[in-house]
Design a protein around this nucleic acid. Structure first.
Lengths: 351, 351
DNA sequence: TAATAAATTTGGAACGATCCAAATTAAATC
DNA sequence: GATTTAATTTGGATCGTTCCAAATTTATTA
């Protein structure tokens, strides 16, 4: 396993301006310049001023690699691995994470696993080589706790985002999935629906089971029957949503409501409804999950379960920061609250 | 200007396994281990084998920082700064860029400027401190060529993506914006429209002017009049699209077609049309720009100008690689071809 | 087998910052 | 002005690699 060489880069000739150069230019020692950089109180205002000016004059750029080398490890990078860069929900989370991270002086490195185990592994290794301070990770289905354990034991703290590895003892920030679909399903039941399907999600990911459980809770509570064909798992995408609607209606034409694993799935359901001549909000009720920004502008506007992406980001960063400070800190698992936001897609009066 | 400290991280105690440890464990010199890592041909198969095993046994992780320090500079990072992480178009580009980059052994660092100059500047400085090999940058409106010049003169090659700084002599990859809106407008004219508006875009960004120019070209060619209110620039978002439609219809109720600066704007236009009881495809023709994945599933499906995000990514990386190899390489500016994809939103038969 | 050539392996000097203890300078006290 | 004390400044040693010239081992040839 030899190292990956980034392209074929000629050893850069461009002579680097170093701390030493600044020192010489200003006429002090390199130690002094270093002290100024980390604004130590033990340097006089006069010299600080002079050094600062000198830095500007010769265009010095701080070298974090050299610094990190000396001060044993990390230089303010953080690895964030999500399932996809171009899925709308990830986009919103990334955006939030970036803001929180930069505010804390941390530079996030985002990447997507594409739901592929070997890609995830490759990224993890690469990021470890770059000595990230820690990982925020949305584990690919099939990730074993031994994979996470290897990361952790190498000295890299990690927090799981959105999903969890089964039986693993690692920090995580997840939505209250069960409560979300429970509320959604209850809402539909309250509107008089009797035949309610659940579509989308992958059976090998933790959040799927939680969301199905919430749906089942509500259905059982109302003593409504759920034949096997009412639950239709499928990896999420708009296209899958289209397919799923067709599948459940084929199974039982009486189905008058579907709770979707995600908004993305719901978009597909909406699209297929149009194609089948079904009017959503009247003939069919649809609930999503996530509350993407698009969801208030779909036609009809989508009733959905909201999870705050800002909360996700903030909680994840807080936890990660905790474990970076102290890897031995007690294990914490945060469950974020969800709220049902009713719009037009269920035909109910808007909230 | 003192350096930004990433949180308050205790000097990591976790004893690092170094190349030296591997050497001692295997019983060779550190130089040999280093040679194995870079799979040099001058090491015998037997020792290579032994070293590789040793690396596994004691769980060594390559330290790119140390390496980069010695080999004068970069360690395979690349800075990518786009305008937003959560805009659909960026998501698609990021996704493509990541794939191309990783395939080349480069780890991309994505960030968003949020269209704010000072944020862009901060990111650039941060990335320079991390010694990225180069930048791919979608310049914030208002970016002067002197800003880019500073980056370039510091030894960091850069390629502009999607937009260009005025009068700057820097490499760029842009879409053939003018041809795109020209084709879109001609399409509408061909369908018999006489009152055609152009909505969206910021006047301080290069692509806006190009797209408006394409629209004007077609209008002039057909001798159609364009009173000032027909062109309605506004920073893009769905909400802006809604507002824009209202504005142009207020200005002239005869307007029967709008070419939008982007698909995102078009989504807003679609949404507002519904609200106003206007049937798109019959009463109003709408054309977008970008061809987001969503655009084939909107209602009605959006006619739009496609620019391949894969082409964008590949071209940008090729150029960057070129300049990383040789900063003196002749200036290149790539204009990517566009194609009009006709769907339902103009009422024309689908292509 | 000795001499030569080729193939491997190796120690030590970088790289550019930080940290520490020691040296210098300035301020405060007698 | 001499001492003590506090405030600044400073030279090395160090972090974990790579690179180089030199040393060692192995293979080839006379």
């Amino acid at each position: 396993m030899s190292i990956v060489r980034p392209w074929n880069v000629p050893n850069q000739n461009h002579k680097r301006v170093t701390l030493h150069d600044v020192a010489r230019h200003v006429g002090v020692s390199k130690s002094t310049v270093s002290l100024v950089l980390q604004d130590s109180p033990s340097v006089s205002d006069k010299t600080r001023e002079r050094v600062l000016r000198g830095i500007d004059e010769i265009g010095y750029v701080y070298n974090r690699k050299a610094a990190a080398l000396r001060q044993h490890q990390q230089d303010g990078l953080m690895g964030v691995i999500v399932n996809g860069l171009n899925t709308p929900y990830s986009g919103e989370i990334l955006n939030q994470l970036e803001q929180v991270a930069l505010a804390g002086g941390i530079v996030p490195m985002f990447a997507s696993s594409g739901e592929r185990l070997e890609q995830q592994e490759k990224l993890v290794r690469l990021y470890m080589e770059h000595k990230v301070a820690g990982f925020i990770l949305c584990p690919v289905p099939g990730t074993t706790s031994s994979v996470l354990d290897k990361i952790w034991r190498n000295g890299f703290p990690l927090v799981q985002l959105m999903r969890e590895v089964p039986f693993g003892q690692f920090p995580a920030v997840v939505a209250d999935n069960r409560a979300g679909t429970y509320a959604a399903t209850r809402h539909l039941i309250g509107l008089g629906h009797k035949h309610i399907a659940f579509v989308g999600g992958r059976e090998d990911i933790s959040d799927y089971h939680e969301r199905v459980a919430g749906y089942r809770d509500a259905m059982n509570e109302a003593r409504l029957s759920m034949p096997s064909g009412y639950v239709y798992p499928i990896p999420q995408s708009r296209a899958a949503g289209r397919q799923a609607l067709k599948a459940v209606l084929d199974y039982d034409a009486r189905i008058s409501a579907v709770v979707c694993f995600s908004d993305l799935m719901a978009y597909g359901v909406l699209s297929m409804s149009r194609e089948l001549g079904i009017t959503v909000g009247r003939d069919l009720a649809v609930v999503g999950f996530d509350d993407l920004v698009d969801s208030r502008l779909t036609y009809p506007a989508l009733t959905t379960v909201r999870v705050s992406t800002a909360d996700f980001a903030r909680s994840a960063m807080e936890l990660l920061q905790l474990y970076i400070r102290d890897q031995q800190a007690p294990l914490e698992r945060r469950v974020l609250p969800v709220t049902l936001v009713t719009r037009e897609s269920c035909g109910a009066p808007q909230s």
